[in-house]
Write a protein that binds this DNA or RNA. Structure first.
Length: 614
RNA sequence: GGCUCCGUAGCUUAAUUGGAUAGAGCACCUGACUACGGAUCAGGAGGUUAAAGGUUCGAGUCCUUUCGGAGUCACCA
C-alpha cells in the first residue's frame, strides 16, 4: 500500500481510538513536508479540532505518538502549530530503493483494460505546420504517452483537413502562376511549396480587391452600407468576405474549383491529389523531426459527408427537429446551451455534422472507451455542443469524451497573424533550436571523439529537448507566451538541464561497478537530501496517474525538473564513487541509477529523448 | 452587449486542488572545482498574488463587486 494511504488510515484509526470520532479520508490531508521543516510527510490536524476538542498542538502530539507506536514505517514526529510532521523510517526508504533501482519501467502502471483514442495535430493541407501546431502535437503526443503509462491502450489519430476552399486557393494559384513548377524544380520543402501558393493567392486576391475598391460600384456600396464614422479602410476590411463570395473573380474561380472537386471532376481531383501529396511529404518530414507518429489518419475528404445518416436517427429519436426551410436543429437549452444547426437547409453537412459522423466511424473502427480531442480552447463551445449531441443520441462512448482545450500561443509581440507574417514556422523553429545546440556544443567540445552522425544526433536531441520542454512545462489550459529567444535556452529550467542530470549519472555509472544491494543496505544514516530524492521518486507513479486524469503533461515536466535539480545539488554536495564508505558508494550508485531511470521515463512521456552523452 | 476563461517578481512560470514564511528559471549582482561532466552548485536583490470586500482556525486558490485582457456567441472550419 502507498505510504500516504498507510498514514491516512493510521490517522483515521488514531482519531477513532483517541477521541472516539469518525473522520473520512477526505478530511485527512497527507502531503509532502516542505523542505524547510523536518520530516517526510505532513498531516494537517485542524480538521480534527471539532472532534477532539483540544488545541491543534496537543492533537498533533497525540496522533503523532499513536502513529509512531502503531505504524512501523513512522519513526518519529514533530508538531509545529497545527502541522504534524512525520519522519519515515530509513528502512522504508532503503527497501523502496532496493525494489525500484533496476526496474526499467518504473512509474508505469499495469493494464487498465481501457482503450483511449487521442486526436491531435489535425492540420489543414494548404499551409505548413506552425508553432500553434507544435503545442498541439506535443500535448497530444505526451498525453497519449501518459495514458499508455497509466495502463491504457492508446490509439493516436489525426484528421487531415484536405478539402475545402483553402486548398482550392493553393491549387488555383498554382494553375495561374505556377508554370508547372514542383518542389523538386524549385528545391523547396514540399509543404512550404504548396503554402507559398496559398500566400500567392492571397496576394493576388488583395491586389484585385484594392483595384476593385477604386471603381464606382465599390464606392456606391461603401456609401450605401458603411456605418457612421466608418472610413473606407475599416469598411473594406470588414467587407472582405462578402467581396470574396459575391464580387471577386478569383473568389469565383476558387469556388468553381471547389464545386468541380465536389462533382468529382478528374482533372481537378488529379491536381488536388498532386498538391496534397506534396503537403503530406512535407508533413511527414516535420513529424519525423518532431519524433511523432499516428496509428491512423482520417481524411476530411472521406468524412465530410458523414453524419447525415445520424441526423435521421436524431430526428426519429426526437433529439433533432426540422425547420420549415428543411434545416435540421438540436435544442440544447436543457443543458444551458443554445439551438444549434446540425444540417443546412440544402442538405449539406456542417463541421458539427462531420464530427458526429467521424466520432461514430471511429468508434466502429476501434471501439474505444474514451476519446480525447486535443484542440485549442477557441473551440470550447463547439465541443460542448458535440458532446451533448452525442449523449442525446445515446452513442455508447459519449460519456467518455474529453476536449483537451489548450490555450493559444502568443509571441512577445502579440498574437500570431498569418496576414502580418508573424507566424512562426515549425520547421524553422526546430532548425533554430538545433543550430543553437550546435553552437553550444562546439564551445564545449565534449563529444568530438564520436562519429559526426552520432554528434549530430545528440545535438538534435538537445535542441528539441529545449523546444519541447519549454512548451510542455506550461499548464495546457493556460495561454502561453512563446519567446523564441528563451526557447533556445539550454540553462536553468530547461530540457537540456534535465538531460544533463541524466548524462552526469550515466558518466558516473560508466566508471562505477554493479552495485551490491546487500552492501547498500548497510548504509546509514541517510542524508536528508537522499531521503528527499527517494521521496520524489516515490511520487512518480502516482504523478503519472494524476497527469493522465488531468490531461496535464506539465505535471511530468515539473517533476523531471525538480528531480534533476535536486540531483544536481546532490551530485555537487556528495561524492558517489569516492564516498566515505563502500556501503554509501553502493547505495548512491543504486540511487543514481533509479533517478536516471525515472528521468528517462519521465522525459519519454514528454516525447523528449535522453542522450547518453552531451 | 450575453456567456466562459484568465490576471502571481522586470520577463517566463509553479504552488500537493483550502494548509506552514507564495516556490523556480531568465535577466542583474557576488561567490564555488588540481572533485564522479561548470549545459552545474551556493548566495544576493526582486511580491500588498490586478483592486476592494466577504466566507474560516487558515485564501493565490471559494463567493461578490470593480478594473484590465482573451475567447466565443454562423445554415464558417
Amino acid at each position: 500500500m502507498d505510504i500516504t494511504n498507510i498514514i491516512q488510515n493510521g490517522v483515521i484509526s488514531a482519531v477513532q481510538s483517541l477521541y472516539g470520532g469518525e473522520v473520512g479520508p477526505e478530511k485527512v490531508n497527507v502531503s509532502i513536508t516542505r523542505p524547510d521543516f523536518e520530516g517526510n510527510y505532513t498531516v494537517v490536524v485542524f480538521p480534527f479540532t471539532g472532534i477532539a476538542r483540544k488545541k491543534p498542538e496537543v492533537i498533533g502530539a497525540e496522533i503523532g505518538a499513536y502513529l509512531v507506536k502503531e505504524i512501523t514505517e513512522v519513526e518519529s514526529f514533530n508538531v509545529i502549530k497545527g502541522f504534524l510532521n512525520l519522519v519515515v523510517s530509513e528502512d522504508f526508504w532503503r527497501n523502496f530503493l532496493q525494489e525500484i533501482y533496476q526496474k526499467e519501467n518504473f512509474g508505469k502502471h499495469p493494464s487498465s483494460g481501457e482503450k483511449v483514442m487521442v486526436e491531435f495535430s489535425s492540420p489543414n493541407t494548404n499551409k505548413p505546420l506552425h508553432l500553434g501546431h507544435i503545442r498541439n502535437i506535443l500535448l497530444g503526443w505526451s498525453t497519449a504517452k501518459i495514458m499508455e503509462a497509466a495502463g491504457h491502450e492508446v490509439i493516436k489519430v489525426q484528421v487531415v483537413n484536405d478539402r475545402g476552399i483553402a486548398i482550392c486557393k493553393s491549387m488555383l494559384a498554382w494553375q495561374l502562376f505556377g508554370e508547372n513548377a514542383t518542389p523538386e524544380s524549385t528545391g523547396s520543402k514540399s509543404d512550404h511549396f504548396v503554402g507559398d501558393f496559398y500566400v500567392r493567392f492571397e496576394q493576388a486576391f488583395q491586389e484585385e480587391y484594392r483595384e476593385w475598391q477604386k471603381n464606382d460600384e465599390a464606392q456606391k456600396i461603401f456609401k450605401a452600407n458603411k456605418k457612421e464614422e466608418q472610413g473606407p479602410d475599416a469598411f473594406f476590411k470588414a467587407f472582405k468576405d462578402t467581396y470574396f463570395n459575391e464580387f471577386s473573380k478569383l473568389g469565383a474561380e476558387a469556388r468553381a474549383m471547389l464545386i468541380r472537386w465536389e462533382n468529382g471532376e478528374e482533372a481537378t481531383l488529379a491536381l488536388w491529389r498532386k498538391m496534397n501529396n506534396w503537403v503530406y511529404e512535407g508533413f511527414a518530414q516535420t513529424y519525423e523531426q518532431l519524433g511523432v507518429s499516428f496509428d491512423k489518419n482520417y481524411y476530411e475528404s472521406n468524412t465530410y459527408l458523414l453524419g447525415k445518416d445520424m441526423t435521421e436517427i436524431g430526428l426519429e429519436k426526437g433529439v433533432f427537429y426540422r425547420k420549415e426551410d428543411g434545416s435540421i436543429w438540436a435544442n440544447l437549452e436543457d443543458v444551458k446551451l443554445d439551438h444549434k444547426t446540425i444540417l443546412r437547409s440544402d442538405g449539406t453537412s456542417l463541421y458539427i455534422t462531420q464530427d458526429l459522423g467521424t466520432a461514430h466511424l471511429r468508434y466502429k473502427d476501434f471501439g474505444f472507451n474514451r476519446m480525447v480531442y486535443v484542440v485549442a480552447d477557441e473551440q470550447n463551445y463547439h465541443f460542448k455542443v458535440l458532446f451533448e449531441v452525442l449523449k442525446k443520441l445515446g452513442e455508447p462512448y459519449a460519456h467518455g469524451l474529453h476536449h483537451l482545450a489548450y490555450g493559444m500561443v502568443d509571441l512577445p509581440t502579440g498574437k500570431m497573424k498569418s496576414r502580418e507574417g508573424t507566424v512562426v514556422d515549425a520547421d524553422d523553429l526546430m532548425a533554430e533550436v538545433i543550430a543553437e545546440a550546435q553552437e553550444n556544443s562546439k564551445e564545449r567540445d565534449t563529444t568530438s571523439d564520436l562519429a559526426p552522425e552520432k554528434q549530430q544526433e545528440i545535438i538534435r536531441k538537445i535542441g528539441l529537448a529545449a523546444l519541447k520542454f519549454f512548451i510542455i512545462k506550461v499548464n495546457p489550459k493556460k495561454r502561453m507566451t512563446f519567446d523564441p529567444k528563451e526557447s533556445v535556452d539550454l540553462k536553468g529550467q530547461t530540457g537540456p538541464y534535465v538531460q544533463n542530470a541524466y548524462v552526469r549519472i550515466k558518466s558516473v555509472l560508466r566508471k562505477g561497478m554493479t552495485p551490491d544491494p546487500e552492501l547498500a543496505r548497510q548504509y546509514g544514516p541517510l542524508e536528508d537530501l537522499e531521503k528527499e530524492l527517494l521521496g520524489q521518486l516515490y511520487e512518480f507513479p502516482g504523478l503519472i496517474l494524476t497527469a493522465a486524469e488531468d490531461f496535464d503533461p506539465s505535471v511530468i515536466a515539473n517533476f523531471c525538473y525538480a528531480l534533476a535539480k535536486n540531483y544536481h545539488r546532490f551530485y555537487h554536495d556528495y561524492s558517489i564513487l569516492s564516498a566515505d564508505t563502500e556501503a554509501a558508494k553502493h547505495f548512491r550508485i543504486m540511487l543514481s541509477t533509479a533517478i536516471a531511470n525515472a528521468l528517462k521515463n519521465g522525459m519519454e512521456l514528454l516525447g523528449i529523448e535522453m542522450p547518453e552523452r552531451m
